[in-house]
C-alpha cells in the first residue's frame, strides 16, 4: 500500500507521451478511454497481462472521479489523459478542470468508525496496487505509476516494444 500524496504543484507533463488526448466528461466515453489506455500498455508490453483487471479498476476509479467529482459531471468539460513509460515504469496521468479535494476527506479504512461508510474506498484500492499514486494541482491531476514487468507480456509484439 503506497502512501497517497496530494501536492499543490503542477505535474511535469512528458515531452513525448505515448498517448495524450482529451475526452469530454461523458460517462459513455469511459469504455473508449479504458480501452485506449489498456490496449496501449498491453500492446507495448508495459503491463503484464495478468494485471489487466487491476489496471481497468484503477482507471475506472480515476476517470469516474475526474468526470463526476473534478468536473462535477459537466459534459462540456474535458479530462486529459496522458500515458508514457520509461525503462522502469509506466505512468497514466488524468487531469480534470476542478479545484482538487481535501485529502482529509478520504476516510481511513483502518479506522473502525469509517469501515461502514459508503464512500471513499477508490483511492485505497488504487493505492493497494500502484507503486506510486500522487495527486497534483491539489487533487485535480492524478498520476498513477507502476513498475513494468521484467519479462515482456505475452500480448506484446516485437514491433511494438519500446
Amino acid at each position: 500500500m503506497v502512501d497517497l500524496r496530494v501536492l499543490a504543484a503542477e505535474p511535469v507533463w512528458p515531452a513525448a507521451p505515448a498517448l495524450d488526448r482529451e475526452w469530454l466528461s461523458r460517462l459513455d466515453a469511459k469504455p473508449e478511454i479504458l480501452d485506449a489506455v489498456v490496449d496501449l500498455l498491453l500492446g507495448q508490453g508495459w503491463l503484464a497481462a495478468a494485471d489487466r483487471d487491476w489496471l481497468v479498476l484503477c482507471l475506472d476509479e480515476a476517470v469516474v472521479n475526474a468526470m463526476l467529482h473534478g468536473n462535477e459531471g459537466d459534459p462540456t468539460l474535458p479530462i486529459r489523459v496522458c500515458v508514457w513509460a520509461d525503462a522502469a515504469r509506466w505512468t497514466v496521468m488524468i487531469a480534470d478542470q476542478g479545484c482538487g479535494f481535501d485529502p482529509a476527506s478520504i476516510p481511513d479504512q483502518e479506522n473502525p468508525d469509517a469501515l461502514l461508510l459508503e464512500h471513499g474506498r477508490g483511492v485505497r484500492i488504487m493505492a493497494s496496487w500502484l507503486d506510486d499514486l500522487t495527486y497534483y494541482r491539489g487533487g485535480a491531476v492524478i498520476s498513477m505509476s507502476r513498475r513494468r514487468p521484467t519479462e515482456p507480456s505475452p500480448t506484446a509484439s516485437a514491433d511494438s516494444a519500446p
Binding site: D60, L117, E118, R121, G122
Partner: peptide, 13 residues
C-alpha cells in the same frame, strides 16, 4: 468480474 468502489458502497448500504 469487475466492480468499482461504488459497488462496495452499495453493498455496505
Amino acid at each position: 468480474g469487475y466492480m468499482s468502489s461504488a459497488v462496495l458502497g452499495k453493498l455496505i448500504a
